[in-house]
């Protein structure tokens, strides 16, 4: 049994997974996709749907790019990647319009903006275009989850402090005076900076090489 466990943990899939969640976490390690991190984290419900959307898109586009990687001519690969990403984003937008109309309304333009999320393009270009379908799939799931859990942490504190609610339910008593700034754009910067600080200080992420960008 232990040898099987070792095999699983040391497998390429597990490494890819760990990289997406932690070692190369898109938010606190690569500082990518910050635009949406700042924009949709003021209410937990919206953040959750946004995260589901991002996971869906990054997984599907990774798999698709990986499938097509042997045929796609190098010089048009980025156009193809954008086309793939845009298609999945539009499909997701249509699906939530049809089945979750209220949340779709609340998210407004941000769902469409997943297209421009650098994480997805980054994974397609940096990983899926040169790796197999299975590993690209794992990479998509891990990257999506790595993005999601940080966003949910930020949204938790922003909604709690800014509105006194969690998922729209009042949790703070009437004594709580909402910190309006937390649900406004500056609050997003404070919350993101705090999360990056705490995770990098206490999360045992190996220090970056000096001079790394």
């Amino acid at each position: 049994m232990p040898s099987l466990w070792k095999k699983v943990v040391l497998s390429r899939s597990a490494q890819v997974f760990r990289a997406g969640i932690w070692d190369e976490n898109p938010i606190f390690k690569q500082i990518l996709g910050i635009c949406s991190t700042l924009a949709v984290t003021n209410l937990l419900v919206n953040t959750t749907v946004m995260c589901v959307g991002l996971i869906f898109v990054v997984v599907c586009s990774n798999v698709m790019v990986s499938i097509l990687r042997h045929w796609t001519p190098r010089r048009i690969r980025m156009i193809v990647e954008v086309l793939i990403i845009a298609s999945f984003v539009i499909m997701f937008k249509m699906a939530i319009d049809a089945y979750l109309p209220d949340i779709s309304k609340a998210l407004g333009a941000y769902v469409g903006l997943i297209i421009t999320n650098c994480i997805i393009m980054g994974r397609a270009e940096g990983f899926a275009s040169s790796n197999g379908v299975w590993h690209s799939f794992v990479d998509g799931v891990a990257t999506g989850l790595g993005y999601s859990f940080i966003l949910l942490i930020i949204a938790f504190f922003r909604e709690l402090m800014g509105m006194g609610t969690l998922f729209g339910l009042q949790v703070m008593g009437t004594w709580w005076r909402p910190w309006i700034i937390m649900v406004m754009p500056p609050g997003a910067f404070f919350a993101l900076a705090m999360v990056i600080w705490v995770v990098r200080r206490y999360g045992q992420v190996e220090p970056e090489d000096e001079g790394a960008a």
Binding site: W71, I79, S87, I90, M91, D97, Y99
Partner: peptide, 25 residues
């Protein structure tokens, strides 16, 4: 030819999802 084919394939799938959800939307 490749670009045209990929575009056609993805446009078609988007159109399918569109018509499948149109009524509900």
């Amino acid at each position: 030819a490749y670009m045209a084919a990929v575009s056609a394939a993805f446009t078609l799938s988007v159109a399918l999802v569109d018509s499948a959800t149109q009524k509900r939307r």
